[in-house]
Amino acid sequence: MNTEILIQAIINGIMVGGIYAMIGMSLNMIFGVMKIVNFCQGELLMVSMYITYLFYSELGMEPFVAIPLVAVIMFGVGALIQSTMITRSIKEDGDQNVLFLTCCLGIFLSNTALLLFKSDYRTAESVFSNKVVSLGSMNISVPKLLGFVALCVTTVLIFLMLYYTKIGKQIRATSQNAIGAQVTGIRTKVVYACTYGLGAAIAGIAGACLMSYYYVYPAVGNIYGTRSFIVVTMGGLGSVVGAFFGGIGLGIMETVGSVIVGAAFKDTLVFIVFILILVIKENLNIRRRKG
C-alpha cells in the first residue's frame, strides 16, 4: 500500500476522531462524577445538531459561530434533564432505573425529532464547507480541522475548569468521594446538574462542529452513541484523557480500516477490534488480579 494514502488516512482519522473523542469525553464526565451510564448521549448530539441547523436555516448563522450558543443551550437542557428526571430516578440499591430512563429519553428525543423534522437529511452550509488545505500532497478538510481545533480547545477549557474553578474542584471532589463532598458542604445536587449540563454542552459543541460537514437526521445519534461506548471502552470508563485518545484511536481505526478492507467493511473491522479489546482487556485484568 501507498504510504501517502496511509498518512492521509491517519490524518483524516485524527480529524474524524475529534468528534468521537468529544462524545466519549462527555459520556465519561457524566459517568466519572455520577456513576451513571448515559444512554442518550448520541441523542443529545442529535438535538444539538438540529439546534445548529435551526440557527442556520432560520437566522442564517454559521455553524462554527453557533458553537457557544449551542453549548449554552445544551448545558441548560442537560441541567434540566438531570435535576427534573435523573435525580428522581436514582435509587440507593442499583442504577437500572437510570439506565432505562436515559434509554427511553433517547428514544423519545429521536422520535420527537422525527415528528418535527421528518426523516429528511438536512445540512447546514458553512463558509468552510468543501474547503481544503493542502500540506504537500496531503489534503485536510477545513471544517474537520476546525472541529479538531474545537476539540482541543474544549479539552483544555475543561481541564482548566476542573482544576482552577470552585465548581470544577467541587465536581472533582464529588466524583472522588460523594460522602466527603456532602460533609464539606458541597451541594451535590447542584454539582450533578452542572456535570450533566457540561456533558450535554460538550455534545453540543461536537454537534455544532459535525453539522458543518455532516448531515442531521433523527437517528444520527445511534451512530455516535454506539461509537461513544467503543471510545470509553478503549480509553477507560470515567477517564477524560482516556476518552480523548480513545476517540482519536477509533477515528484512525475507521479511516485506515476503510483503506485496507474497504469502506463497506470498516464498521465490521471496528467492532471486531472492539470485541478483541474487550476480551483481551478482561483477560489481562483477570491475570493481574491473580498475579
Binding site: Q176, I179, G185
Partner: peptide, 22 residues
C-alpha cells in the same frame, strides 16, 4: 448536611471520606 454546616455543625465521617486524588 449543608444547612447543618451553615449552622456550624460539621461531621468527620466514619472511614475519613477524603478526596484521594486531591
Amino acid at each position: 448536611c449543608r444547612s447543618f454546616i451553615d449552622h456550624g455543625i460539621i461531621l468527620c465521617p466514619e472511614g475519613r471520606q477524603l478526596f484521594p486524588q486531591m
